[in-house]
Design a protein around this nucleic acid. Structure first.
Length: 513
RNA sequence: GGUGCCGUGGCCGAGAGGUUAGGCAAGGGUCUGCAAAACCCUGUACAGCGGUUCGAAUCCGCUCGGCACCUCCA
């Protein structure tokens, strides 16, 4: 088994990921936490690029026969748009979403959060991501967060003002180790010094809890002199609390988008390590941003896509050349087509390329299934080439999740199956199916693990009778070698929206577009 | 201003001091009534300018361009 090497943001170098713990039967046990989204709207494809990075780690770990404890949270507490400002004038994004046009459908923020959390899980399945072992929600772990804050206050790492509880950054000298924004960085102080709270001791301190009895979500917390601090938790503390609850004091791996390096992950490290005295995560993995057609994805530029925008038959999908919606596995392929540690340019063309690639896997599978059915005698001549392709695919993924190299290696396997298409005996077909399963376990682009949600467009039930009549007529014309008539009929079919192709098995009709 | 990262052929995207990445597109061919599909062949790229080296896309410096974070953000 190859080593799994990943770039560690802490050292900015590739390091071999070695789980600290083993299961009773001696397998490595990976403790892995991946930051999920705030559920105030539908997750976009950039979010999913990050989740796909985590998904690959899980798949590779499974292929290496590790036991994987994979936790991916949902942030369903609305946090102020300015995390350091403790006054209640700032509006949090969940509250903002509730007041938006889409938000009118929801009676409360809780309903809104529930809706978008469900949507996230649907999209998760559409893109064929592995389910986490636990998907904890911030609102269901407020007790754990309050306990963590209490302990931080007790140990002198945090203090309460009239308005909030802050983590004292100077009490944790290693602050800045992850991002490079260390305590001697002069502007960190200047930029964060926009706080109106007079009681804040250092402008760089960040909030663990905010007192706010107007916030849409609020809980009683025993902070402050009167031990009555009705309010809501700071953004960073939820991950520290939930990671610790499910995975213990020290994680093997913690992942997220590159924007989380600072302040979110930096603050998590400070809180967690101040709390436990132990290293929080041994390895940090961050996914670079996705761009669309060479530009930053943004709603104002019209290049902002959610998964459902592309997968369902929407105007957005049609504008990209997919009137019936993009094959979810093609979208998955496109989002994996670049290595996580480099920016990826998501383009219309890349999406079309990906759709073709996914189609090749699918047709290889069809070929193999047919040959398995026929089950002609003979030895498999395919096993060696396919085993080699698998080994190289896995090796590429172990080399810092090098997905382009992995896809290149896997495609060699597809080619081997295509080349064997006519002479494939039963043994070769079994080898092909086996290889497709193993490769699918690694990359997830051959078939989905999930029955697609009902939103998946139903395939048309077949061509209408008039089309079938023309096809029959054309078969007759071809049999009579009346090719002029045959070509006229092909044009007639095209006018009805169908393409006809001649294959060794006869005519094949597919809808245009 | 600070912190971190990137710039490869028509497009997407690996590689990383001396040996073909790969895909898609394009051109040529085989096959087919014609198409389609499939298969075979073809491209010669590393932002610019200096430097180190026998040798640099790969190391160093500068310049230009882009991205992220420093304020909610995957």
């Amino acid at each position: 088994m190859p080593d799994l090497r990943l770039t560690n943001t802490l050292s900015r170098q590739q390091e071999t990921l070695v789980p600290a713990e083993r299961t009773p039967d001696g397998r490595p046990r990976l403790r892995f936490y991946s930051c999920g989204p705030t559920v105030y709207s539908y997750a976009h494809i950039g979010n999913f690029r990050t989740f796909l990075t985590a998904d690959l780690v899980v798949r590779v770990a499974e292929a290496l026969d590790w036991s994987v404890a994979y936790v991916s949270n949902i942030t369903d507490v609305g946090h102020l748009t300015n995390d350091d400002v403790a006054d209640a004038d700032g509006e949090d994004k969940m509250a903002k979403a509730l007041r938006s046009k889409e938000g009118e459908a929801f009676p409360t923020v809780y309903d809104l959060a529930r809706h978008y959390a469900t949507a996230l899980e649907d999209d998760w399945k559409r893109l064929n991501l592995r389910q986490p072992w636990v998907r904890p929600r911030a609102t269901e772990h407020v007790t754990e967060q309050i306990e963590a804050v209490e302990r931080l206050i007790a140990s002198g790492h945090a203090y309460a003002t009239d308005e909030a509880v802050y983590f004292s950054v100077t009490s944790f000298p290693a602050y800045g180790r992850l991002s490079g924004n260390t305590l001697d960085t002069p502007l960190l102080e200047a930029v964060r010094d926009v706080v109106v709270d007079e009681g804040k001791r250092d402008p760089r301190d960040f909030a663990l809890w905010k007192r706010d009895d107007h916030h849409l979500m609020q809980w009683y917390a025993p902070f402050g002199p009167d031990r009555d601090f009705k309010g809501f938790p700071g953004w960073h503390i939820e991950c520290s609390a939930m990671a610790r609850k499910y995975l213990g004091d020290t994680l093997d791996l913690h992942a997220g988008g590159e924007d989380l390096i600072f302040p979110h992950h930096e603050c998590e490290i400070a809180q967690s390590e101040a709390l436990t005295g132990k290293p929080f995560a041994r390895h940090w993995l961050h996914t670079r941003f996705l761009q669309v057609e060479g530009e930053k994805m943004s709603k104002s530029k019209g290049n902002f896509y959610t998964v459902r925008d592309l997968v369902e038959p929407t105007e957005a999908a049609a504008a990209l050349g997919f009137p019936r919606g993009v094959d979810p596995l093609a979208l998955r392929y496109a989002l994996l087509s670049g290595q996580y540690k480099k920016p990826l340019n998501f383009t219309r063309k890349a999406l079309h390329d990906s759709a073709k690639a996914v189609e090749r896997y699918r047709s290889a599978r069809t070929l193999a299934e047919a040959a398995a059915q026929a089950n002609a005698p003979g030895d498999s001549g395919l096993s060696t080439a396919l085993n080699d392709a698998y080994t190289r695919t896995l090796a590429a993924l172990c080399d810092d999740l090098n997905t382009p190299a992995a896809f290149a290696a896997a495609l060699d396997g597809v080619k081997a199956i295509e080349a064997a298409r006519d002479g494939m005996n039963g043994a070769a077909a079994q080898a092909a199916l086996d290889w497709l399963d193993r490769t699918n376990a690694l990359l997830g682009v051959v078939v989905s693990d999930y029955a697609l949600p009902s939103a998946a467009p139903a395939e048309p039930t077949g061509p209408p009778a008039e089309v079938l009549a023309l096809v029959d007529e054309r078969a007759a014309a071809r049999a009579a070698k009346d090719f002029a008539a045959s070509d006229r009929l092909r044009d007639a079919l095209a006018a009805l929206g169908w393409t006809v192709q001649d294959t060794p098995a006869g005519q094949e009709i597919v809808p245009l577009g």
